[in-house]
Simulated assay, not measured.
Amino acid sequence: MEWLILLALLALVVLVILTKQRGLTDEFSYEKNESLFSPAERSFFGVLSQAAEGQAVVFGKVRVADIICPSKGMGRSNWQKAFNRISSKHFDYVICSPETLSVLAAIELDDKSHSKGKRQDRDRFLESACSAAGLPLHRFKAAATYNISQVRGALFDPPDDASEEPSLPETPQAEVEERQVCPKCSAPLIKKVARKGEHEGAEFLACSAFPKCRYIAKSIA
């Protein structure tokens, strides 16, 4: 008789568990999105992939909190508040070093939604946060067509304006060329050609970790 009671109790427990599980699936319903990107974002992803070929790896829809984080030492309460401001946001794209996957820059594609007040507040906050973290943030306007060379230049070419060039270290030029590494971060130096400005056509050495490192050696032409 006792075994019948135990069997009935066991059946009752199983029934309760199954009912709860069914209730959970009934309460929440999900469906798969058709695409990770909107059509405009997918189009620009293809442009970015071509522009970054050989120099960076492109990732899309990356959580901001996976790229930057609140500074230490601000206290638990303030740290949590700062984290909450970035926890639900994401970058449209992030480019990383192909060798180490270290983050080189974040990229935002600005469509017409960025003209709205709340979106502009969000954009200003992201720019401020990235600036504080030392993370380059590039913005591109959504368009029907893009010039891949211009996109590549905006991401990877050092500025031609002398006023924007980083100060050069006191390392002798001969030593820099012999070492072929950046004296600031030890990344390989690569030869580049200025595409515009008064130095158009001149060859120079630049750090391959640009834009994370903006070291430029003197002209080698």
Rank of each mutant, 00 (worst) to 15 (best):
I86P: 03
S128C: 05
S38H: 15
E177S: 06
I67F: 05
C213V: 04
A132L: 13
E99Q: 06
P98A: 04
E2R: 15
D161A: 10
V193G: 06
F83G: 12
F83M: 10
G54S: 13
G75T: 08
L109P: 08
F140M: 11
P166T: 10
R179L: 05
L7H: 06
L15M: 14
K218L: 08
V16P: 10
E108C: 08
K112R: 13
I5V: 06
Y146C: 05
F140G: 01
I216H: 12
K191I: 08
R214H: 09
L36Y: 13
F204K: 14
A202I: 12
P159K: 12
Y146W: 06
P136F: 08
P158W: 04
E127I: 00
F37V: 00
I216A: 07
G54V: 03
E27K: 13
R139K: 15
P188M: 10
D92Y: 09
R119I: 02
Y30E: 02
R22L: 09
L4D: 07
V13A: 13
I67C: 11
G23K: 10
P70L: 13
H90D: 03
R119L: 00
V14Q: 10
R124A: 08
S97W: 01
S43K: 15
P136C: 04
S131W: 12
Q55D: 12
L155D: 00
Q50N: 03
I148S: 06
A206N: 11
L48M: 03
V94H: 00
S102T: 12
Q21W: 10
F37M: 13
K191T: 10
I67D: 01
H199V: 04
N78C: 05
L126C: 04
A154P: 08
S88N: 14
G75Q: 11
I107C: 08
K20Q: 06
D111G: 11
N84W: 05
K191A: 09
D26A: 11
D123M: 02
V64W: 00
A133D: 10
S219P: 08
I220M: 07
S167Q: 13
A194R: 11
A8W: 08
P136G: 04
V58E: 05
C69V: 07
C130P: 02
P39T: 00
P70D: 14
V16W: 14
I95Q: 12
H90E: 11
I68Y: 12
V62E: 07
S29D: 06
D161T: 00
A194P: 02
C69E: 11
R42E: 11
Y30V: 01
E34W: 07
L18Y: 15
D160V: 01
Q21N: 14
D121I: 01
R139D: 05
K218W: 03
F44M: 11
A52F: 11
V151F: 12
Q80Y: 12
H138D: 00
V58D: 03
P211V: 04
K112M: 10
L7G: 14
R85S: 14
V13D: 14
K218I: 01
K112G: 02
V181H: 04
